[in-house]
Amino acid sequence: MFDDVFNGKRVLVTGHTGFKGSWLTAWLLKLGAEVIGLSRDIPTAPSMFEELGLDGRIDHRLVDVRDLDAVRGAILETRPDFVFHLAAQAIVSTSYADPVDTFTTNVVGTMNVLEALRQASWPCVAVMITSDKCYDNVEWVWGYREHDALGGKDIYSGSKGAAELVVKSYYHSYFSDGRLPVRIGVARAGNVIGGGDWAKDRIVADCMRAWSAGETVDIRSPSATRPWQHVLEPLSGYLTLAQQLVAKPGLDGEAFNFGPRAEQNHTVVELLGALAEAWDGRDPSEAYRITNDIPFHEAGLLKLNCDKALFHLRWESNLEYEETIRLIGEWYGAFYREKADMFAVTMAQLADYEQFAADRKRIWARA
């Protein structure tokens, strides 16, 4: 997998205690990496990070990415071969309630990682992860491309657009001339779903919390359309980008979108119906109720064009929509109903995903 580039390597992950960070950490362990994680806290309860016992499997450090000295100290001490920067305030509703925390975490945190890497004297590949919300979304029907305008009307989108500008300015000011042994890539993805998500105001997490307690879930925007993708889809893109940055210097400084095929766009109601069927076969009309409480702006439509990743990285999404729903239902079923060993369940789903990729001849899964 991934040409075995992570096996035996030191990989630093910021935001490793979050939903995506926990999945990435688990996958890196499976790939043979030595993982160092930087996060300021355990963001949810329950927590996938804690349920998998990842604190005992990696070099787990509680570090706030807004603390430059701490970030710089961790990077200079551990001298990672790869850095995946995921640490972020990623909840839209929270961004409205606490814009200062959102901007400082997403913008200053990104700057601090890059500032620390300015002192790297060893070869290192850094993948800076932002979001599809970095684009100035005018809700047109075609997907956004990497050169489209950045920024947004809301606090969260603004923070992600600003983080992108920080990456661009740092790259061209310090890294692009090749004097530093660091290669930088930027990854953009969104609408990620999967087992192990317990963040507030996320549709799958809200559903599983409610349904596991025998309750009905409230939804705000039933007609909102999103390119839903399993968490392992963009993670395979991030890992592919890192792998390719090692082999192809010409990709240094480039940004890439990672998302599902266009036919996997579904409304919130369609997603809820599929999840309800996978969870317990209930009538979708009994699984949720629609509220008119929309306290902040939410985009109705947002899509990405991923042709650049296909052309340059030969990356493409791996799962069918039905497979995504099944994996989610099985993960939460194992947690809530079976009280299973969730590290073993997660590793089994990673193995299934890798097998899907091998069967479908995805570039990163070749022997």
Rank of each mutant, 00 (worst) to 15 (best):
Asp3Asn: 15
Asp4Phe: 08
Val5Pro: 00
Arg10Glu: 13
Val13Leu: 04
Thr14Val: 04
Thr25Gly: 00
Thr25Val: 06
Leu31Gly: 03
Glu34Val: 07
Gly37Ser: 12
Gly37Phe: 10
Asp41Glu: 13
Pro43Leu: 01
Ser47Cys: 06
Leu52Asp: 02
Gly56Lys: 14
Asp59Pro: 03
His60Asp: 10
Leu62Arg: 13
Val65Trp: 06
Arg66Gly: 03
Asp69Leu: 12
Val71Met: 08
Val71Gly: 08
Gly73Thr: 02
His85Ala: 02
Ala88Cys: 10
Thr105Leu: 07
Asn106Ile: 07
Val107Leu: 01
Met111His: 14
Val113Asp: 09
Val113Gly: 06
Glu115His: 07
Gln119Thr: 14
Pro123Phe: 12
Ser131Pro: 00
Val138Asn: 07
Glu139Thr: 05
Trp142Ser: 14
Gly143Arg: 10
Tyr144Asp: 03
Asp148Cys: 00
Leu150Lys: 15
Asp154Ala: 03
Gly158Gln: 06
Ser159Glu: 08
Ala163Asp: 05
Glu164Cys: 11
Val166Cys: 00
Leu180Trp: 05
Pro181Arg: 02
Val182Thr: 09
Gly190Phe: 07
Asn191Ile: 15
Gly196Ile: 06
Trp198Gly: 07
Trp198Gln: 06
Arg202Val: 12
Ile203Asp: 02
Ala205Ser: 03
Ala210Pro: 02
Glu215Lys: 15
Ile219Ala: 01
Arg226Lys: 09
Gln229Trp: 07
Val231Lys: 01
Gly237Ile: 11
Leu239His: 11
Leu241Ala: 00
Gln243Lys: 04
Gly250Glu: 09
Leu251Gln: 07
Asp252Tyr: 01
Asp252Phe: 00
Glu254Val: 12
Gly259Phe: 10
Arg261Pro: 10
Gln264Trp: 10
Leu271Tyr: 01
Glu277Gly: 00
Ala278Arg: 08
Asp283Trp: 06
Pro284Lys: 01
Ser285Asn: 07
Arg289Val: 08
Arg289Ala: 09
His297Met: 14
Ala299Tyr: 05
Gly300Ala: 10
Leu301Asn: 12
Asn305Pro: 10
Asp307Tyr: 05
Leu310Phe: 12
His312Lys: 14
Trp315Val: 12
Trp315Arg: 03
Ser317Met: 12
Tyr332Met: 04
Gly333Arg: 04
Phe335Gln: 06
Arg337Pro: 03
Arg337Glu: 12
Glu338Ile: 10
Asp341Tyr: 09
Met342Val: 12
Ala344Val: 14
Asp352Ser: 13
Asp352Trp: 15
Tyr353Glu: 02
Ala357Val: 08
Ala358Phe: 15
Ala358Arg: 15
Ala358Lys: 15
Asp359Glu: 13
Ala367Leu: 15
